[in-house]
């Protein structure tokens, strides 16, 4: 079961929900946690992984042999990202624009393009209690997060519960995090800002045919517009986390609140049961 915790808006509590859900489930399930927010991975602050080791993530960048190149320009034309420019007497490669798709070397009829690996970041693996913890980290100056997320997701196993902490927004890194997920758990806050970006997230998940559910964080502030929207759209609100000073204080000390409040462990387990029912409606009961 792959659950991606996502949000259109930043700072709504994705990591809070993902971390607490993973910890609550880890007492009775095998859980993998993947921090897919590779531009700013911070779930480790709460989960404090141990024994981390890292593997580099590379993409394949074209290298053009000008001895062989006929300057036909086929590669430049094929490149969706404009990473190659071909002129009458020279050819330029822009590695920072390259997405590593390899199309240029396929279309080259002169066999002038070889590929070299370029490191764009790393995936670190560690453990938190019984949780297998992964986090991706994009090298500063590198623009592309998706290859790191894709690499990290190869670690996902079918039989375990995988909790993916997605970056915010609706662009490529979010799509990559959601891709292949059984469920999108969308975290929002009950404000016009939260609602605006929640609408976008719901659209994205529906476009990808991924069932959605909502967690409203900081419940009690703002207005009722998120709840009204969810009701109108038939989007289930699966949890409300109150705007509680104690929860905020624990957060600011890097302590997941399920570690202090046992009743929340139960609520996150119920949340998972509801998700399981939505994903697999024919299953009669779930062992917890």
């Amino acid at each position: 079961m792959q659950i991606t915790v996502s949000a259109g808006k930043g700072g709504t509590g994705k990591t809070t929900v993902a971390v607490n859900l993973a910890l609550a489930l880890s007492e009775s399930h095998s859980v993998e946690f993947l921090d897919c927010d590779v531009e700013e991975p911070d779930a480790g602050i709460f989960l404090k992984p141990e024994n981390e080791n890292s593997e580099p993530v590379t993409i394949e960048i074209p290298e053009i042999s000008e001895d062989v190149c006929t300057y036909c320009g086929d590669c430049s034309e094929a490149c969706e990202f404009n990473a190659i420019a071909t002129f009458s007497e020279n050819v330029l490669v822009y590695p920072e624009l390259c997405h590593g798709c390899g199309l240029c070397s396929r279309v080259c009829t002169a066999d002038a393009i070889s590929e070299r690996s370029k490191i764009i970041g790393e995936v670190r693996r560690g453990s938190t209690g019984s949780i297998d913890f992964y986090e991706g980290d994009l090298t500063i100056g590198e623009p592309m997060a998706t290859p790191i997320i894709r690499d990290m997701k190869k670690k996902v196993t079918e039989e375990n519960i995988s909790i993916l902490d997605s970056p915010p927004g609706t662009a490529c890194p979010v799509i990559e995090s959601l891709h292949g997920s059984d469920f999108a758990l969308l975290v929002t806050e009950p404000t016009p800002f939260g609602l605006h970006d929640l609408r976008l997230s719901v659209k994205v998940a529906r476009e990808m045919n991924i069932p959605v559910g909502v967690v409203i964080n900081r419940y009690g502030i703002g207005d009722k517009s998120v709840e009204d929207y969810c009701e109108d759209e038939g989007v289930p609100v699966l949890m409300k986390i109150p705007n509680d000073r104690k929860i905020a204080e624990l957060y600011s000390n890097g302590v997941p609140f399920v570690n202090k409040f046992d009743n929340w462990k139960g609520r996150f387990n119920q949340l998972f049961e509801e998700i399981t029912r939505i994903v697999n409606p024919r299953a009669k009961s779930v062992e917890v």
């Binding site: 320009g73 990202f81 404009n82 990473a83 420019a85 002129f87 009458s88 624009l97």
Partner: peptide, 19 residues
Amino acid sequence: ASRGASSGAGVKAAQILAD
């Protein structure tokens, strides 16, 4: 044609002018 490119608009525009 490079006006709406997702990336590398300047590179593509230079290519257009060179062509």
